[in-house]
Amino acid sequence: MAEFSWEARSPLERALVSEPYGVQGEAGVALTEIRNFDLVQVMARRGKASEMATAAKGHFGVAAPETPKAVRTADATLIWSGPDQFFVLSKGGRQSVKSLVPIFAASASLSDQSHARVLISISGDKARALLAKLSSIDLYPAAFPVGAVAATSMDHTSVTLWRGNDAPGGRAVFNVLVFATFAESLWQTMLDSGAEYGIEIGHSEELA
């Protein structure tokens, strides 16, 4: 009997080369792919938005976002993804679709999106300048504070964009969830757009 190995490969595994890109010197932008996460779409059943909210509060200990915001729980980030729906982003199977189904059984429909998205984190002095080329969203600090979320498009591709906690030193960190089959294309566009600032490239298993 043949031996089968089921190695999970990120859609960016080949496109992402962990070395400096573009202009040499201190990189203006850091692009980091976060790999191997659990992502579950939670959508309230018709007329069950408040039941879903109650279930979320009971399970996560914090209220799920009802407006475009991302909130942190002990072991997950809840990211608004549309009216009466949100994503649960986590690592290590702690909030997998399997574990969440019973929590929302009476109030919401769940879809596993863990493999459907690629998560790219963007930081650095020129992060906003780079994102201004890809996104029509106003990312001015006061207009898009920590925890702000936008369900929006980049390069005609739907994405979920949110501002994570600032990095040490106060630099803003932006996270982009992009559809997996579009990821390499968007990644190339990011490299193309960011080359003039110099890009530091890497990948990580840790959620920022």
Binding site: R46, K48, M52, D84
Partner: peptide
């Protein structure tokens, strides 16, 4: 205005 059935509003 949102469509009547946008989100999970009871209709």
């Amino acid at each position: 205005e949102p469509a009547a059935g946008a989100g999970a509003r009871q209709v």
